[in-house]
Nucleic acid binder design. Structure first.
Lengths: 244, 244
DNA sequence: GCTTAATGTGTAAAAAATACACATTTATTT
DNA sequence: AAATAAATGTGTATTTTTTACACATTAAGC
């Protein structure tokens, strides 16, 4: 992970975006990112205070216009980098929102992504006090149509994490099985059986036992593991069940 | 389903699109549709012959630019309607393709949809002999980046049909279990056990037995069924297994 | 009425998911 | 140093789901 203290961040106010949109004769394209983190056993999302009058006091997702000379994936990476100082983060395109009146400034079609990153590598807290991490469970009433976008991205994450080992992107390199289970439980908003959870992960054979244990913990320390990406290759299930 | 013989179809040549793209200072937005049908036990896709010189002799997906006063979902519905005469068809947005150089005419970002329709209601064959149904299994070398778009939409359909009862959109209202199984087998490109397939569908309790049988068939006729949409409500599984 | 070709049906075995309890380890308290 | 608190680590029995598999039945065509 490349961490930069954000010196290169070009400040793009939403008012500038408003101007650009209003100057455009056609459709303006933007990218919005639902940036997830995991801290204190809670799933978090990074939000910025909206500075459009209509949405005063509401929070919104991090986004920006796509430059005509920029791939949309690149725009998503740029937004995450500008706002977190991190590159090489996990990003997945989710859906494009294109209702005529979804944005007050004019016709803006937005491509939504979600991103998973290790919140402890996030380091721009000092540079923009309009940006904060929020508990996913308490996110309501976002600006624009961002609540809908957020809900859909969150649902997508819930689904994806059951199909692919993405959770590791939210954890430090070394983690305990308890941390992993807490992560799953907070994303899925349910409780799981500890023995079955462990059994499942060991059976998948994706974890490397680091032969280390937690420290600074007030009880019996758990063993530490690392995600083994190599083992994951070719594990993708060839599936033919039907399940509605 | 509303069938119109296509009289209102505004002929939009790709050359017109080229012009519009080249006149634009920013990003142009289009929609491309992978229109699926099912006929003679084969999954089919509707393609049009490309008229851009560079892609002469290649086929491409059906698409068009999005009008600034048009929702993108509306654009997808319009494209399907203009090309098939059908409205109220199943449409699902899949992914947005936004590489800078994906289109030779300039910066065109395209939102891909797939559509499922009853091929027997398709009725525009006479109006545009540049449009044809192709076996999905033999689609190769499409124009632009349409092969990639097609492959991703096809993969999405394969996944979705295992999770939701979408197949019915491709069949006539009345169908036999054999037809349904053929549909699944051709979409998933595999063979299934007949008894288990039937057991599965009966267990899901989504079919209404019409107490009728096939006609014009040279062997013992199968019973006919209808998809029961009401029963489907609230069947969506509440799932918490982990499966990579 | 004989042949052909597909429909319709049940059970046993294997695999996967679930429910569940107790001994162990470390830090903390007394 | 012993007792307590809090979480880790582990195995088995039960249930559910998935899979494999064979034969009698029906209608049409000859």
């Amino acid at each position: 992970m490349n961490i930069d203290q954000g010196k290169k961040v070009p400040k793009k106010s939403i008012n500038r975006i408003q101007q650009e949109v209003q100057n455009s004769s056609g459709i303006t394209l933007s990218v919005d990112c639902v940036i997830f983190g995991f801290d204190e056993n809670k799933l978090k999302v990074l939000l910025i205070r909206s500075d459009i009058t209509k949405f005063k006091e509401q929070w919104s997702l991090l986004g920006d216009l796509v430059d005509p000379n920029e791939d949309i994936d690149a725009a998503a990476n740029r937004i995450v980098f500008e706002r977190t100082g991190m590159s090489d983060v996990y990003l997945e395109q989710v859906q494009t929102f294109g209702k005529i009146k979804r944005h007050p400034a004019g016709r803006v079609v937005t491509v939504a992504y979600y991103s998973l990153l290790n919140i402890h590598q996030y380091s721009l807290k000092k540079f923009d006090n309009e940006i904060h991490w929020h508990d996913v469970s308490s996110v309501t009433n976002l600006a624009f149509d961002h609540q809908e976008i957020f809900d859909i991205c969150n649902a997508r994450l819930q689904k994806r994490i059951l199909e692919h080992p993405l959770g590791f992107n939210l954890l430090p390199k070394k983690f305990s099985l308890r941390e992993l289970q807490n992560l799953y439980e907070s994303i899925l908003e349910l409780k799981m059986d500890r023995r079955n959870f462990r059994k499942k992960f060991f059976a998948m054979d994706l974890l490397t036992d680091l032969e280390e244990v937690e420290t600074n913990v007030t009880h019996r320390p758990g063993k530490l593991y690392q995600f083994n990406f190599n083992k994951y290759q070719n594990k993708k299930k060839s599936w033919a069940g039907i399940d509605f």
